[in-house]
């Protein structure tokens, strides 16, 4: 089961996990990304490529499902304006054993950060706006999964 969504609306973590719990595996792992309120951030705007972003999310999910022999994978990414504390991204994986579920989940979130076409603009309390620059540590985290045989 591969389930990938790109949406403005909030998602229901409990409902998404229940889909995976029902697949008969021995382990379900998940990651929920939350908008941080650092530096007086008041809004995070997520821009995406209408034709490309969902296709890339789907491709990454399919690759992970195959590599770790997953029973199921859910990838949800939000777009639009989000407030601090809002959930922004959700990745969950179901596998026969915990190792595959945990590794696949970590790999997917690392690769989403560097390979899915999203751009983030922060609005701060004084009204100033800035586009988030990619971090070298994110590139290194994603590259690790490719080096390790992806």
């Amino acid at each position: 089961m591969i389930h990938v969504r790109l949406q403005a609306e909030v998602f229901d973590v409990g409902a998404e996990l229940a889909r995976l719990d029902a697949l008969g595996g021995g382990g379900v792992a998940s990651f929920t990304g939350i908008v941080r309120g650092d530096d007086g951030l008041t809004e995070l705007l997520l821009e995406h490529h209408p034709g490309m972003t969902l296709a890339m999310m789907q491709a990454l999910a399919e690759e992970a499902a195959q590599r770790w022999n997953l029973l199921g994978v859910v990838v949800i990414h939000r777009h639009g304006a989000l407030a601090p504390g809002a959930p922004i991204v959700f990745v969950a994986t179901a596998a026969k054993h915990r190792g595959a579920a945990l590794e696949a989940c970590a790999s997917l979130i690392d690769r989403l950060k560097t390979q899915a076409p999203f751009w983030k603009r922060e609005t701060l309390a004084d009204g100033g706006q800035r586009w988030v620059e990619p971090r070298a540590s994110d590139d290194e985290a994603a590259a690790r999964w490719l080096r390790d045989g992806g």
Partner: peptide
Amino acid sequence: REVAIFPPVTGG
């Protein structure tokens, strides 16, 4: 047919 030009991506 289509070319997209953008800064490095920052998802997740």
